[in-house]
Amino acid sequence: MNVFRLTGDLSHLAAIIILLLKIWKSRSCAGISGKSQILFALVFTTRYLDLLTSFISLYNTSMKIIYVGCAYATVYLIYAKFRATYDGNHDTFRVEFLVVPVGGLAFLVNHDFSPLEILWTFSIYLESVAILPQLFMISKTGEAETITTHYLFCLGVYRALYLFNWIWRFYFEGFFDMIAIVAGVVQTILYCDFFYLYITKVLKGKKLSLPA
């Protein structure tokens, strides 16, 4: 565990909590892509199946349970409790265009052709693109609430910090995982455009709105 890894995890946790609180406090999930949230729930479910097979540390186990629990709670709030506020008309990204190729890739490029490993690989690949329905939704409506941009910022920073974690681990532990690294780079790149808007607009007190 190094500082990048820990702050990355905390940033990820902050993102998840920010989103849950935003929906809970405003009693509304307007502007949030339910499809992205379903994909994240699928990511955590397929990645953390090892909760049932191996124990790594109390930190590892509790964070996994919190992540997966919050992911399902978010999906529940969007599709059940506050369903009336869900903006389905703007959440039109075709997720099968992500899930099917990612599933195929997980079968073809993995560390070991076993069910758990393929599911883990699937989750890594899927996570890298799971935010696309949310970004698509923002590009369609042309704007995002400021709290939603804080969520996205924390979520993007998390994977960027993991990149530094992997550089650290490569140098100091001789450890690297090519699948995670490549997917992590892709994932971080997808946020670059958003990072630019966040820094130039939101941090200067303006609402994130895209030119028409």
Binding site: R5, D9, H12, D50, I56, S57, N60, M63, K64, Y67, H111, D112, E117, W120, Y162, N165, E173, G174, F175, F176, D177, M178, I179, A180
Partner: peptide, 10 residues
Amino acid sequence: PEEGDEKDEL
């Protein structure tokens, strides 16, 4: 260590 050895990351 072997690639993708132990999955201690989240």
